[in-house]
């Protein structure tokens, strides 16, 4: 487990965002320790995706500060990657072309190196036999893995996951979180996940936060979350499952 005092890779202070009269984020502050998996929980429509998009710079916050402590691995784009809720894969490109795209466009790697890095990324996620397939020819879970391969191919330090289990059935949801844990260990990135899948998030995360009415109502370890007697927290803590223990090995 990663403690709250580990050096933060991302520090968010008093983030605010409103659309018209509707205040989505009233004041959100959060520190994401390097190497951790943090899940931001909340009901649908509480502004989890808006929060993530403000962090990524896809939406401009009204106030507050977002500070990244990122470096880049030489030759690769590095930095921060984003896994979109709908995967955002280019449907007219093959799996190989989708994963190669960020390397082609943002690095000075040679063609041969790009192909090798792309094949390695696909192989790591069990998609090496599907390089010539188009996204529409892959299952939902495989598309999610393909999107993760594209997000990881630039060797980012921080990956932002926007509802990675949206639209998936319970076994597939479990598999996605298992994938995040497994590949976090393999690729050594920090993960910030926004989700409303309480049970999977508690089992896979080092820390969890609960977004409610535009503020982080709770932040702590999964154990603290499960033991909390706060009525709002408890309303989320009904279904806790455990992931296989071999994931930590």
């Amino acid at each position: 487990m990663i403690g709250p005092l580990s050096a933060p890779i991302l520090q968010v202070t008093n983030l605010r965002k409103h659309f018209g009269d509707h205040v989505v984020l009233a004041s959100v502050s959060l520190a994401v320790p390097r190497g951790s998996i943090i899940s931001v929980l909340g009901r649908s429509g509480t502004g989890k995706s808006v929060f993530l998009k403000c962090l990524a710079g896809l939406l401009k916050p009204d106030a507050g500060e977002v500070r990244f402590e990122l470096g880049a691995i030489e030759g690769f784009g590095g930095g921060c990657s984003y896994l979109f809720q709908g995967n955002a894969l280019f449907d007219s490109m093959t799996a190989l072309e989708n994963v190669a795209l960020p390397l082609e466009q943002t690095t000075r790697l040679r063609r041969r190196e790009i192909v090798q890095a792309t094949r390695d990324a696909l192989k790591s996620l069990g998609l090496d036999k599907f390089g010539d397939y188009f996204p529409a020819q892959l299952s939902g879970g495989m598309q999610k893995r393909l999107a993760l391969a594209r997000a990881l191919v630039t060797r980012p330090e921080l990956v932002l996951f926007d509802e990675p289990t949206a639209g998936l059935d319970p076994p597939a949801r479990h598999a996605v979180f298992e994938m995040i844990v497994r590949y976090r260990q393999k690729f050594d990135f920090t993960a910030l996940v926004v989700t409303h899948d309480i049970s999977e998030a508690l089992a896979a995360s080092d820390r969890v936060a609960l977004l409610e009415e535009g503020r982080l109502h709770f932040e702590g370890t999964p154990a603290e979350f499960a033991a909390s007697d706060d009525c709002i927290v408890r309303s989320f803590g009904d279904s806790i499952v455990t992931l296989p223990t071999d994931l930590d090995e």
Binding site: L58, Y82, F84, Q85, A88, F90, L101, Q105
Partner: peptide, 11 residues
Amino acid sequence: EQIDALTMMGI
């Protein structure tokens, strides 16, 4: 969201 994805990839 492919345009947002391009932005996030640094493209």
